[in-house]
Design a protein around this nucleic acid. Sequence first.
DNA 1: GGTTGGTCTATTGTCTACAGAAGACAAGTG
DNA 2: CACTTGTCTTCTGTAGACAATAGACCAACC
Lengths: 237, 237
Amino acid sequence: MRIEAPPSMVQLATEALMRMLLSGKLQPGDRVVENQLTQELGVSRPPLREAMRVLEQQGLITQLPRRGAFVTQLTLHDIYEIVTLRRELERLAVDLGVPVREPARLQRCHAALDRHGARAHAGDWLGVLEEAVEFHSSVIGLSGHRRLEEAYRSIQLQMLLCMGMNRQARASDESLVDDWERHRRLLEVIESGSPEAVHRELAGHGDMAFLDGIEERVGGHSPESLAWLKRVREGDS
Amino acid sequence: MRIEAPPSMVQLATEALMRMLLSGKLQPGDRVVENQLTQELGVSRPPLREAMRVLEQQGLITQLPRRGAFVTQLTLHDIYEIVTLRRELERLAVDLGVPVREPARLQRCHAALDRHGARAHAGDWLGVLEEAVEFHSSVIGLSGHRRLEEAYRSIQLQMLLCMGMNRQARASDESLVDDWERHRRLLEVIESGSPEAVHRELAGHGDMAFLDGIEERVGGHSPESLAWLKRVREGDS
DNA sequence: GGTTGGTCTATTGTCTACAGAAGACAAGTG
DNA sequence: CACTTGTCTTCTGTAGACAATAGACCAACC
C-alpha cells in the first residue's frame, strides 16, 4: 500500500481559500490581504502567495500589481461567458462520454453522488456544494478527457462564486435534497446510454434560476450578454 | 499619458520560462531545478516558484511534491485531448465571432499579423512563434469571449510545447513565410464574413503535419487516442 | 554477490526580514 | 472652502536563510 505524501502548505492554503470563497466568507469584491490570511490560516506568506496565484489562474481572485488581490467580481458579460462555455463543454463531454465505455469511470460518479446525498441529508451546506462540484466533474470525466474536465471544473467554480451571495439564504434542506435527486436522475439517464436524452436532461437541469433579476445584481452589461440573456429568457433553455 | 507599472519579477520569470519552453531550451521531460533557474534568470526563489505555479496551471510544467518540477511530457492521449478541445473551441469562437461585430477587434488581428510577417521575413524563429500565438488568440478574441480566448491560448501553448522538438529542424525561412501567408488568408476569409468558409479554412489549416509518425515519438496510447488518430488519418480532417 | 543499512548531498518547502510602493490623512495654501 | 502637498502607515514584492526530505552512493552483512 502506497502511503500518500503529506499535503504541502500551498495545497492546504489553496483548499482553505477555496472553502472561504465557496462559503461566502470571502465575497466578490472583497480585498484579500496577505497578512490577515497568514494569521488566519497559520501559513507564512510565500506559500499563501503561491496558492493565490493558483486561484488567480482559476479566475477566482484578481490581482492588481502592487495594489493587492480581490475576490473576482463577475459582470453580466462574465456570466454570459461562463454559461455559454460551460454548455459547450458539457455538450462535448456527453458526445465523447455517452454511452459510457469504461464502467470503472461510473464508479466515481456513484461515489460522489452518494457523498452528495449524505451531505444533503445532513444539511451540510458547504459539503453539498463541494460534492456537487465533484459529481459534475466526474460526469464530465466520463469522456476520459482530463483537460475538458479541468476546464469544466474551473468554469463551474467561477459560477458558484457568483451564486454565492443568494445561495446561503435560498438553500433550504429540502432544496439540497432536491438537488441530489436531480443529480441522481441525471446519472440514471447517462447510464441508459442515450446522448440525446442526456442533452435534454442537462438542458432542463434548472440551475438557471439564479439568472432571475441578475441584471440588477451585477454590472458589465455588454451587448453580447444582453442579447444572450434575452434569448435564454425567451425559452431557448 | 498613463505610465505603466514596472513588470513584477513573477511576470518576467513567467515570460522567460515560457520562452525557454517554446524555444526548446527546456525540453519535455527535463527536470527544472529552482536554484539553477534563479541563477540564470537573476531572480530569487519565491517569485520563481510563483511563476512555476502559473505554468503548472497552464499545463506546461508538472510538479511532483518534494520531487521537483519537470517540463510536461505529453502522451498520445494528451495530444488527442488537445486537438479535439482546440477544434471545439475554435468552432465556438467562429460561431460567436464571425461575422465580426466590432471592427475594433480586427485591428488586433491585423497588428499581430503584421508583426508575424515582420518576424517571418527576418527569420526570427521564436518571434514568429510568439506572434502566431498572439494572432490565433486575437482571432479567437473576435468572439469577445475572454475565457474562450484564454482556454484556447493555454491549449495552443501546450501543443507548441509538444511540437518543440522537430520544429526547429523543420522550420525553414520559407515555411515561416508560408505560415504567415496562410494566416493572412485566414484573416481575409474571416473578414468576408462567412462562418462556414472560416470553418473550412480552419479545417484545412494544415498544422497537423506533426502527427506523422507521432505514435513512435510519444507514449500513452489510450484507446480513445488511437481511434481518433485513425479517424484523422482517414481524412476526417 | 545481492541486499540491506547508513550517510551524505542536492534540492525542495517554509519562514523571517527588509525594501519600496500605494493610499490615507492632515496640514498648509490659494 | 476647495485643492494641493507632504508625511505616515500599511501592504506588497523580493531576498536570503533555515529545516526537512528524497535520492545517490558506499559499506557492511547475510
